[in-house]
Design a protein around this nucleic acid. Structure first.
Lengths: 220, 220
DNA sequence: ACAATAGTGTCTGTGAGACAGTATCGA
DNA sequence: TCGATACTGTCTCACAGACACTATTGT
């Protein structure tokens, strides 16, 4: 630390921006809102909250997730901190981005404070389009998308995008969506074999062979 | 973003803490300083700087590295942001940790502003000891140590810890130190084969077969 | 019977791991 | 010649990739 007293210097504001990912209709989606004020009025933005002076970053993220989705106890992790000087044209705001994953079955984002003005948008479509997003939120989403893809293969992060009980074809589709390529059933099953455990249930009512339900093995 | 004007709320200070890693005497070392003021007076701490109101996070990290080591143009990356409320007992300071890697040949940390009170400490020794460090700096160092180990195998990050020209035994020792285990020569060479290119030089003057010098292949 | 999807058996190629062997320096 | 370290050849084994095959539902 330096010798000067930081309290006499001008300080930045610190916010938490949230990337709430889910999978809907076999597509990766992200929760976004439409800004109703300047700057970037009318543009799409990530939901976010300012970090309270007596609030940890994780707590701020949890609070933001709760406000937007009504949910707590969902998976989240800190992504990266964005600190360009002019990322917000009004004033200096440093943004700590957090990524949250939620199975679509749990997600009812009108359950939060916001009852309208929020959407689940297709991430690939959004990133491929040249639509202007608020602030540096395009860059933040790209960062989250990469992290997601990077962690699929060497963590169990994908399990956070399926319901508590899931079929292997469902889980495989999640892997395929995150990786952006198709996988072979056999190989996929071998890979996840030691992360799952059977239940006694299976799907029914569809015009094909039923599929066994599994759950994530918690120990090990 | 929320509706309130953040400028009327109390803001945290934002600092960048630096983990300057190097390898000296076949050990992973980190640059640390002894605090001369309260709090944690006399305790070891990571060097750090406050982020200027018109300075990006990366720029603050570069400035800090320059002040401590006299170096610019060395490898660094953002590690993680630590925002516990009481991590600094004086006031709320959010710390964005950055990790820098520098080959020992380039490192002369008395070249910076600080001419004394800085040391290269053995990271494993430090983490195994129960020595009290300033702030949450033990946790930050653990975080950096893990990141380093995690990235060795699927990036070329280890190359930042050897000189521009290096022998394969040297590079292998870096890998071994970061991974904490010995490697087989043959397999190691196969792994790095497509990341290196030969030079026309080799070591001399040692009582054994000389070793060819390589450099990192930049294209590809 | 048939369409549709779930699930299995097995061959192959790639790459990590292990180890034995050869090469080249100074003393 | 010898000790020490640099470098190479090659066997094995685990695992990802590829693909053919069988199984079970509703219509």
């Amino acid at each position: 630390m330096e010798k000067y007293d930081p309290s006499i210097y001008e300080k930045p504001s610190v916010a938490v921006d949230l990337l709430v990912f889910t999978i809907e209709d076999d597509r990766l989606k992200i929760l976004m809102i439409k800004r109703e004020e300047s700057p970037f009025k009318g543009k799409l933005a990530l939901p976010g909250v300012f970090v309270g002076i007596n609030e940890t970053l994780d707590k701020a993220a949890i609070r933001g997730i709760k406000e937007e989705t009504g949910l707590k106890d969902i998976y989240f992790e800190q992504l990266y901190t964005f600190g360009d000087v002019k990322r917000d044209p009004r004033m200096r705001i440093i943004s700590v981005a957090y990524m949250a994953l939620v199975p679509i079955q749990k997600l009812d984002f009108t359950a939060g404070k916001r009852t309208e003005g929020a959407w689940l948008l297709d991430v690939e479509e959004l990133l491929e389009s040249d639509k202007k997003l608020a602030f540096d939120h395009r860059k933040i989403i790209e960062c989250g998308r990469k992290r997601l893809e990077g962690k699929v293969n060497y963590t169990d992060i994908a399990f956070n995008l399926v319901d508590e009980e899931f079929t292997l074809p469902e889980l495989q589709r999640v892997y395929e969506i995150l990786l952006g390529k198709t996988l072979y059933k056999t190989n996929f099953r071998k890979k996840v074999a030691d992360m799952i455990e059977e239940t006694d249930y299976q799907t029914a009512g569809e015009a094909h062979r039923p599929s066994r339900l599994y759950r994530k093995k918690d120990i090990e």
